[in-house]
Write a protein that binds this DNA or RNA. Structure first.
Lengths: 163, 163
DNA sequence: GGTGAAACACGTCCGAG
DNA sequence: CTCGGACGTGTTTCACC
């Protein structure tokens, strides 16, 4: 599930400031971050480690250019599966997650049980992914594909006060 | 658009290996990466810099726990806008991208012009986002909301041969 | 908690192959 | 293109506040 990080012992102003800095670039040096938020490097280091220990920071992801990786075509593929039982959902989820075309898997409510975010080299491969790969899974009952012209990601999540 | 990184001068085996290592953790030290792929630190450093210069590596994103940030409820919100002209699309895209609830914006084909990936503290705030915030924008013609139970991201994009 | 200083590790540059 | 080594910067620990 979300990994809702258990009950968190409040993220204070200093933590928020550190998170802001690291969200702008996860490779900022600890010295930089410390200077930007106005504390000593040792303090910034201890806070950052604590955020990691508490699970607020889960890691640092490399942001790669999908076009440069030879996969300029993105799509959102809505999938309905049958039956939508736990066993089938979890099996399909893990299977879809492991496909090389897959960037992400959303497990959803609504008309679709899953929305797959995929990136492929061209339209032919997108079509092949949908009609060959997906339909080869016996649980797939329905598929709707939307091509993604553009995908913007927010690089800044502001913490909201707990409870 | 995608930022398809101009024509790339082929990502060779060493580049691929470096990308694999960094995708597992964007904060791996250069020395670590060098040891893992079997070259000297100076070679690994030069390769990594070249990947950055060529736009293959765009940066490093902090992976935060949305639950720990006080925003455990995620949704995909499909939005149809009217008229779907360039000016209106770009204006809506930038507006949506700037909302604090927004994690990402997909510009798509199909029944929806946009799919917004959002994270909020609870269901009430999700409802408020849809019926207060979104409908306040005059271009919004239709909205469909799917709650996201789970979102898995792939942390590994394999490069595909170019052309 | 927060801090500065010292010990250590790392990123970086460069001359050479 | 790759390498090793020298040098400056960053990280980490720890005794003190």
């Amino acid at each position: 599930m979300f990994g809702r990080g258990a009950r968190i012992d409040a993220v204070d102003e200093l933590d928020r400031a550190i998170l802001r800095e690291l969200q702008s670039d996860a490779r900022r040096t600890n010295r930089d971050v410390a200077a930007a938020v106005g504390v000593s490097p040792s303090t910034a280091l201890e806070r950052t480690r604590a955020l990691r220990r508490r699970g607020v920071i889960r890691g640092a992801l490399l942001d790669v250019d999908l076009g440069a990786m030879g996969r300029p075509v993105q799509a959102l593929v809505s999938v309905r599966i049958r039956p939508p039982s736990r066993a089938v959902i979890e099996e399909f989820r893990d299977w879809a997650q492991g496909l090389p075309e897959t960037l992400g898997v959303f497990v959803t409510t609504g008309t679709a049980d899953f929305v797959l975010h995929v990136a492929v080299p061209d339209n032919d491969r997108l079509y092949a992914f949908v009609i060959d790969r997906l339909t080869q899974h016996t649980a797939v009952a329905d598929v709707r594909t939307s091509v993604v012209f553009e995908h913007l990601r927010t690089t800044r999540v502001d913490p909201v006060a707990q409870d």
